[in-house]
Amino acid sequence: MATLAATRELRLIQRRGTRALASREMRRVLSLWTQTLLPPVLTGAIFLAVFGGALGSQLRTVAGVEYLRFILPGLLVLTVAGQAFANNSTSVFQAKNEGYIEDVLSSPMRPWQLLIAYMSGGLLRGWLAALVLWLGAWPFAGAVQSLAVRRCGPAAGAGGARARPDRPHLRRARCHHRDVGRQL
């Protein structure tokens, strides 16, 4: 009984530690927004301006989809993945290089809890940067549909077509992706 209570107490301690480290990581992202959020948004905006504006004016559409709307989902996913990776690696490297990671490593948290806490900062940075980019692109590209996520196939296509009979170009774009993939 005493062992069970001690185990529960330890788990509570470890959960508190994990929450504290996660909040530290998220606070770091928000307080350093000029270094963590602004650069990826500007980079994404430049990508959109160059590819969507200059190249898009030549291509106009890809598989029936306006070029800007075609590249935006990929750009958003790239922003989430790239910024999450950059944030976590920078934060851990800084902590290790400056030595203050020892305070965290000598705490009672489990390794997987440290991992989750460090990931939370990256997730926040990735999603926030992508959200700002998406909102900034909305007036030009409109609401972006999930081109990349939906499966391309007879069932998915039929389902997608039934769900959005007003947007057959989305299905065409999905099938275009599939065909390109097969060729590659």
Partner: peptide
């Protein structure tokens, strides 16, 4: 933060 890493309330 150190106190919270070590589970203090």
């Amino acid at each position: 933060y150190h106190g919270r890493y070590f589970g203090m309330a």
